[in-house]
Design a protein around this nucleic acid. Structure first.
Lengths: 173, 173
DNA sequence: GTGTGTGAAAGTCTTCACAGCT
DNA sequence: AGCTGTGAAGACTTTCACACAC
């Protein structure tokens, strides 16, 4: 990134520095946090406690960035009541009431693709505003619901394309 | 995406359809697979068998997209020899020989941030060409090594920004 | 001197519109 | 009629260059 690029981008969000002086970083971080919405901690619901869901529940890095899993749901009786990363897995029947009670706005959807759409709709009914979608399907929810898809196969494809292209430029193996 | 957009993008990669007729999909898929480098199956090494590494080893969706974990490495003695998703965890000391023997080109790096750089350098020495990096650090490797970073906190920030922005437009809770 | 904010220029990407093919 | 490939126009982004502040 060029310096000019950074200045321009910041310019879209407001004025963050003082000409001739520079940026007062602590203040700037605070203001940018507000823009990103991470000036407050966001509570997360994790739906689907397969190995990926468990990994996310255990991941300690979220809190540092302003995100905190506070509830987990799964359909499997064998998982209900178990704790992962300090969160007790609840049955799907409690999804709506828990999300409403705790006023959870963001959910991580880590269920099998076959049931992702149906579960996503339940989340919307429960009042969820944004979904981080790990299932390889298009959810097509109401427009005001934010959905960010995460497809690791796509990232791997990007990698394989890059390696392929590099190899074509200089095939030195 | 508009139809024009798709035509333009395809145009950069070659000619895929016949004017007046359309696209012959099976052929097109084959040719695009070749462009992406997914006409062959890519073997993957998973380095760091924490909960995320285990989730990736178990994930069945990769094979459908042309990726196959074939080796796993970890530093913890308690994990070495255990099997996850059909792959036996090997000690780090075998990393170089296994990668060379099996001619593995792509690696998934799911180790703690503190050791990510050091492990990444070992991977490069072993002959890895591309790294899918889950550690929240900049690896700064030789230019010809492809690195794709995956930072879930970034995706969550995107989500929180979108929810925040939607909320500002119409604060109907 | 150092450093930000910002118009203007350059560059890139997307959309439009249509020629040419079946 | 229906569809792709592609130059031209339009929209958007990045880079440049400099006024202005300390």
């Amino acid at each position: 990134m060029s310096a000019a690029q950074v200045r321009k981008d910041l310019g879209y969000l407001g004025q963050f520095g003082r000409p001739g002086v520079g940026y007062y970083v602590p203040d700037m971080v605070k203001r940018l946090r507000k823009v990103f919405g991470t000036d407050k901690v966001w509570d997360l619901a994790v739906v689907g406690v397969g190995s990926l869901g468990r990994a996310l529940l255990r991941y300690k890095g979220f809190l540092k960035r302003g995100f905190r899993p506070v509830a987990a749901f799964d359909i499997a009786k064998s998982k209900i009541g178990k704790r992962f990363g300090g969160i007790t897995v609840q049955p799907m029947s409690q999804l709506e009431s828990t999300i409403k009670d705790k006023q959870i706005k963001l959910a991580i959807l880590s269920v099998p693709a076959a049931v992702a759409k149906e579960v996503a709709e339940k989340l919307v009914d429960a009042g969820i505003k944004g979904i981080l979608n790990f299932a390889p399907v298009n959810l097509s929810l109401p427009e005001q619901i934010a959905v960010v898809p995460v497809d690791l196969a796509v990232q791997l494809e990007q990698l394989s394309y890059m390696v392929n292209a590099a190899d074509k430029r200089s095939p030195n193996r």
